[in-house]
Design a protein around this nucleic acid. Structure first.
Lengths: 238, 238
DNA sequence: ATTACTATGCACCGAGTAA
DNA sequence: TTTACTCGGTGCATAGTAA
């Protein structure tokens, strides 16, 4: 599936180097940073770098060449010595990596989702037209939601993150009966999208799907200038 | 150089899995953690994982098998579904990685060195037998140093970290003349070794070498139970 | 639909070596 | 001593396919 590769590039527009930076080069870049090459020109032989990485001098030399081609480091070569410094672009790469690890260990109550803004009427929108839900929602979340929802379409891997919502109760809007129809409990989670406060709503008895529905006080499509197909980053608090 | 590999293992005794966890598997483990597999059993198909990693279903499947062999994940296989959870050992691996990145971005005023306790009389020890240095040292560092120094032997890569000390003035002990001999300025840096306060001393006009000399209020070899050849982790504040 | 085998090809590695 | 080339081996990748 070559498409997957393209999609990944698409998801990381601020990272033009990614296509050349594989995990091996990232590891090498990290090592150089740990040796001090992030802040200043580091004088290091390829054999010293190699032994620090647990690889040969030749392999370290090759990696330095590849990283230079990828724009992650700059080198000053003198006759018998090289000085290595990580570029701005290389630092960005490392920071991106760092932030991912930080999410794992520090943002344990948050889920970060990435998906496409999509049209289509979901159940959530229907629920948010019921006054009984709306009143509970206003009390619990502190704002009255706009009557529509923003749908976000997820691929399989992103959708699997929704499993984390199982463990958390979230904010429950109690079900009720009205006009002979029964409405079940609905789960809400506080969320943010491009910094804007919003909430994710999910029928409590449901299996996970590829769509999340987001509500906010104002019409997000307008306030944030969202068009169908835009890639959105959503942060959910669990 | 196969030796390099062994040395690395030696430097990381708390990481018995490292020999099987290459950068590719670490990357995969990180992705699984980001999808939620660190906290709970994650239900994810190998093709979804693959597309999230930008590799094929087959490659993702292989990586899962390899990680399971390495003890980094545990899997529950049902007929058409697998559930993946990162083991304690896998979490440790990720945390080790995380801490390295944190050092890069958060500990910008610290250097972490790893080396071997060594015998031998260095210049530092000689300097620390001069009262003029000792008095200045006591005022600046807040403790009177024990009359000996602990030497730490560094390999090439670790020694290159000492270049960071160039940029920083450190704590300068002024030179003087005594008995017809001239003593130059000496640089000190606050440091810690196994939690104990100490200091690194370096002649100001010197090129970097493979040895650092550490002084402390008490004899570190005794208080910390250090023998020649022990691997020591030293943290220097710059 | 899954997972994961086999076969084949590419990329990375280390040894040897040139400059 | 350095860096970095070529070359041959190996390990990881994907395609095809079985179960």
């Amino acid at each position: 599936m070559l498409l997957a590769r393209f999609r990944n590039l698409f998801f990381l527009p601020s990272n033009p180097m990614a296509q050349f930076m594989n995990p091996i080069l990232i590891e090498t870049l990290k090592r150089i940073a740990l040796l001090g090459g992030a802040k200043r020109e580091l004088e290091i032989s390829s054999s010293a770098l190699g032994s620090s990485l647990g690889v040969s001098q030749q392999a370290a030399s090759k990696r330095l060449i590849d990283m230079e081609k990828a724009g992650a480091v700059r080198r000053g070569m003198s006759v018998k010595r090289q000085r290595v410094k990580i570029t701005e672009s290389g630092i960005r790469e490392l920071r991106r990596e760092y932030l991912e690890y930080r999410r794992i260990f520090e943002d344990r109550n948050r889920i970060y989702l990435s998906g496409k803004a999509a049209s289509g009427v979901g159940e959530g929108r229907y629920y948010m037209s019921q006054n009984e839900y709306l009143e509970q929602f206003g009390k619990a979340l502190g704002f009255e939601p706009y009557h529509g929802t923003l749908n976000i379409d997820l691929d399989d891997a992103e959708a699997s993150k929704l499993q984390s919502l199982d463990a958390s109760e979230g904010i429950v809007l109690r079900g009720f009966s009205s006009g002979g129809r029964t409405f079940g409990d609905v789960k809400c989670f506080k969320a943010k999208i491009k910094g804007a406060e919003c909430a994710v709503i999910i029928p409590k008895r449901t299996h996970y799907r590829h769509m999340v529905e987001v509500v906010a006080a104002k019409r997000l499509r307008e306030t944030l200038g969202i068009k169908d197909g835009d890639i959105l980053e959503l942060m959910i608090e669990i």
